[in-house]
Amino acid sequence: MQRVKKIFRLVHLFVWLLFTFLVGLQLYADGLSYWLPLTTGFILTALFVFYSHFHLLTKYLGKKKRREYFLKLAGIVLTSPLPFVILHPKNSGTWDFFLGYYPIVVITIVPIFLFLSWLARVTETLVLNTIRKEQLEKQAAETELHYLKSQINPHFLFNTLNNIHTLVYKQAPTAPEAVLRLASLMRYMIYESNAITVPLPREINYLQDYIGLQQLRYKNSAVVDLTIHGVPETCEIAPLLFIHLLENAYKHSPARLEPGAIKVRMEIKANTLTFQIQNPIGSNQKKMEVEEPGGIGLANVQKRLQIQYPGQHRLEIVNSGETFTVSLEINGTHTHVHESETQLLHH
């Protein structure tokens, strides 16, 4: 905000210097020998009218104090011609001279700069209010986004600790490995996920760690078939965006899964990232809702997409009764695009 106000001050200074130069140049070109004092008187009158009214509007604009405003405005109108009349090179110090030039200035010069000061004040107020509104909206969005991210950590931790508890209870030899994998996942969630975007390969590694942690529950081959097409290094993505979709796939699948039963497809093409996950539905969950009561899952993902990718995403959810498929398409994931957005948010 202070930067914008500083820009406005520099614009004022530049415009007045340019205006003074043009007025002096015109009077000099007209062959007036007294062009300098005439220019000085004219500019001082213009400055007095403009900034007196400008600050008057700053104080009373939008407030119901019309009487005070008009009384002070009358004072500005009555006193503003004095610099021009007093500094006029033809000033003879007589009442005839004063009464001759005073009304001319009041009628011609004063209304012009009253209007210009009003226009400048309204324009600056509009710009500042717009920026202030955008900042408030951005702060509200960041607060909500922080809240949504804060939901992820305890939700994920709760589910994973339950799984590790089961392994420890059964004295499974994979329990220590599960603890190490969880530590790796938590390190990413705590230290790296606070950024606006992260490199897509890092998010993929996070998903693979999670899949590896979940795989400890199964004795057969990998139950998740993860396929990636394209070059992930060219993309950045909002962190922790896919984890709920993957959690839901495990949660709503049958207790026993065949190898490759959960299919995860990721495709990076041009400036678009497509993520699709499909899982079989357990026999006791064919009539399930999109998210069970008290869950976070898809609702969290949908809100985050609205905040971080407004107008840039498409989310489709299909429940066929046999399989549950979520397809997500995000535009604007190319590294250069997000670097620009990050710089704008930073500034």
Rank of each mutant, 00 (worst) to 15 (best):
F8T: 00
L157T: 12
E124L: 07
I268W: 01
G41D: 11
F19G: 02
V318N: 10
R121I: 05
T20N: 00
Y34E: 13
L22Q: 06
L71I: 15
I204L: 08
P239I: 01
Q139S: 13
P176R: 09
N248I: 02
L344I: 13
I317Y: 10
F21M: 02
V85T: 14
E322K: 15
A74T: 11
P89S: 04
V11D: 04
W95M: 14
I243N: 09
N91F: 04
K287P: 07
Q214S: 09
E267H: 12
L145W: 04
G311R: 05
N331W: 00
S327H: 06
G282A: 13
P111S: 09
I277F: 09
T39I: 07
T323D: 08
F8W: 01
K263D: 03
E203T: 02
Q171L: 02
L17R: 05
I76G: 08
E124K: 03
E124V: 02
T323N: 11
L180A: 08
V127T: 03
P103D: 15
A270I: 04
A140P: 03
L27I: 05
I112D: 10
T197F: 15
N194Y: 14
F21D: 01
Q278I: 09
R217T: 12
F324Q: 05
T123H: 02
N153L: 15
S320K: 06
F98D: 12
N153T: 08
K5E: 10
R187T: 14
K263V: 14
F48W: 13
V264A: 10
D30A: 12
V77N: 11
S150H: 01
I277Q: 00
G282F: 08
Q278C: 06
L47R: 07
L161I: 13
M266N: 02
H334G: 11
A141L: 10
Y206G: 00
T79V: 15
Q215N: 07
I164W: 03
Q214Y: 03
K65I: 11
N331Q: 13
T58F: 06
Y60S: 09
